[in-house]
Design a binder for these strands. Structure first.
Length: 283
DNA sequence: ATGGGGGCCTGCCGGC
DNA sequence: TGCCGGCAGGCCCCCA
């Protein structure tokens, strides 16, 4: 579900109710999500103060006063919903617990943060803050697409000699960390590159052009609060609205939006995932 | 090493 | 109304 813009939106939503606050009670309703929770997770969270709330790729990292860092991944259907806090002009009361509410963090300011994840592809783990980046889920991630180490010569080098389709390469979190199916489709449309093009066959100029496009697509999506399709919600329960800006994703059969183009958006399956593109504009 | 496919889960939607 | 297949924003793991 959530790609980098959605995760960043959730992080920003959690920031005002979590950062600097003590977790007065962590309530854990099942032993695992995708993987077992770490031993004594509830006890290790209860009483800890959240000193910082960071993001790495699609992971949220909450640094704790205990010297540990809480790692959160939303998988496909994970949500972090805030209740009981004053958010802007609105006061949200605690709603009745819902199905798939797996972990609830009670904060000292009265807010509750509920991790709800129907499909349970999400994850939570704890590790020492000092070695957080060595966590198995983080250690081999590629650079942040919005960071300085992601640049054209890097991407050119990464894609050189690759026989995999550019669609798959951009989904590969080892190459660049944070893109998912939506934003890869939108990126390739803007770059006018067919998703089936072999990554290593792209001229370096076309690869270089991908870098600013990726940055722009992600920045626009963050600005819009992410994309809400099925179950994604911002932390305050609001919907993102970048889905209204989709030019190809989820638009199979609809007209291509390039001025003058009369083609329809096509859907193909690559590595088991849908790719949406315009066969005329992305030859 | 690289690339492709299966599998993990639940929910929803469309077709019959 | 109900059942069934297909599909969904991710990512690890196994196989060739």
């Amino acid at each position: 579900m959530p790609e980098l813009p959605e995760v960043e939106t959730v992080r920003r939503g959690l920031l005002p109710v979590m950062e600097g606050q003590v977790i007065t009670l962590a309530s854990v309703h099942r032993p695992d999500l995708r993987w077992p929770f770490p031993p004594q997770m509830a006890d290790r969270l209860t009483g800890a103060r959240v000193t910082a709330l960071r993001r790495r790729s699609k992971y949220i990292l909450a640094d704790l006063s205990t010297g540990e860092t809480l790692l959160i991944h939303l998988g496909m259907s994970g949500r972090m919903l805030i209740s009981g806090a004053i958010l802007g002009e609105f006061h949200h009361h605690h709603p009745a617990p819902e199905k798939h509410d797996h972990v609830v963090l009670h904060m000292e300011n009265g807010a509750r943060i509920t991790f709800n994840d129907a499909r349970r592809f999400g994850a939570m783990d704890l590790m020492p803050t000092a070695t957080a980046e060595a966590h198995p889920l983080l250690a081999s991630l590629g650079p942040e697409p919005l960071g300085n180490t992601f640049h054209d010569s890097y991407l050119v080098a990464q894609l050189a000699g690759r026989n995999t389709p550019i669609k798959s390469a951009l989904l590969d979190q080892h190459i660049v960390a944070g893109l998912g199916n939506i934003y890869v489709c939108e990126t390739l449309y803007r770059a006018r590159i067919s998703p089936v093009t072999r990554a290593g066959q792209l001229p370096s100029g076309r690869v270089a052009a991908l870098v600013p496009i990726i940055r722009t697509v992600l920045a626009e999506a963050i600005e819009a609060g992410g994309s809400s399709l099925r179950d994604y919600r911002q932390a305050d329960g609001e919907l993102g609205y970048f889905q209204h800006s989709f030019q190809v994703y989820d638009r199979e059969g609809q007209p291509c939006l390039t001025p003058g183009c009369t083609s329809a958006v096509q859907r193909i399956v690559q590595s088991g995932r849908s790719s949406f593109y315009c066969p005329t504009c992305q030859p």
